[in-house]
């Protein structure tokens, strides 16, 4: 059995709790706390578990694209146990859409060569859930997405997943190389240990400009025409149940003509 090369795509996103706003048609990333996308932690964890189940010699490389401070989020994923990282950062990538993001990631993946690419199902900021499928389409690799479980047979170079979506559960199988995305039910991501955090400081983050990746940036193929904050919802009526809370609820629904 040869050593498996695993890539995990990660993204730095504004903290879920942060108030997000649009500036000039783009998400304002300057004024908010930035963290490792929650859903990518499951991808990192799954990669670590695959390596741990298959013994020595396998490697996990993080791949990310974003502003310079993306390295902070990447450092967290390194402290969980990934081996090294490639970060593509370039001022030309500001406001990159999913098409450009997937192109940059696919290019890096193709250049480096991997057996498995693992992603989260979506980023908590853009929430499009399309990048893993786009990477698969661009590379011509098997798409095994929305995985609720991943079983890797390294000897046979094959992966079997259960695909869990709102429609149901499918079992899917493919030969290496594959693009996987994992849902958040798949595992419980580990907290970085002190040792892991110390080790991560010494791990290599290879920062590349766009020219080094070999992608020419075209104008985005979609544009934001207008972004308007919606008025916040105001609290309405709030009552305490004194034995008639259910009746009051029904009266409210009747007033609203819902029932």
């Amino acid at each position: 059995m040869t050593a498996m090369k695993i890539a995990v795509c990660v993204k730095q996103v504004p903290d879920s709790w942060a108030e997000k706003k649009m500036v000039n048609g783009l998400l304002d990333r300057e004024g908010v706390d930035a963290v490792l996308n929650d859903l990518d932690e499951y991808a990192v964890e799954e990669a670590l578990r695959i390596v741990e189940a298959h013994g020595e010699g396998h490697t996990i490389t993080l791949i990310s694209m974003g502003p310079e401070r993306t390295t902070e989020a990447v450092r967290k994923a390194l402290s969980m146990g990934a081996d090294d990282a490639i970060v593509v950062t370039d001022s030309a990538l500001v406001g990159a859409d999913a098409l450009l993001t997937s192109e940059v990631l696919a290019k890096v993946i193709a250049t480096e060569g991997f057996d498995l690419v693992i992603c989260g199902t979506e980023s908590t900021d853009a929430r499009m859930s399309v990048v893993p499928a786009m990477i698969s389409q661009r590379l011509g690799w098997a798409q095994l997405t929305f995985a609720g479980s991943v079983v890797v047979d390294a000897a046979a170079s094959s992966v079997t997943i259960t695909r869990v979506t709102e429609a149901g559960v499918d079992t899917m199988k493919a030969q290496f190389p594959v693009v996987i995305s994992v849902i958040e039910k798949i595992n419980e991501p580990r907290y970085p240990s002190f040792k892991g955090i110390m080790a991560a400081k010494k791990k290599v983050i290879d920062v590349r400009a766009l020219a080094a990746v070999g992608v020419a940036v075209l104008a985005s193929w979609s544009e934001v025409k207008d972004a308007t904050p919606r008025p916040p919802r105001a609290a309405g009526i709030k009552i305490s149940d004194e034995g008639n809370g259910g009746d009051a609820l029904v009266n409210f629904l009747a007033e609203k003509k819902i029932i």
Binding site: K20, A219, S222, K225, D226, A227, P229, R230, P232
Partner: peptide, 12 residues
């Protein structure tokens, strides 16, 4: 749901 965005595809 806090922001309404209007956007258009301008290619293809």
């Amino acid at each position: 749901g806090s922001t309404t965005v209007l956007s258009r595809v301008n290619h293809g």
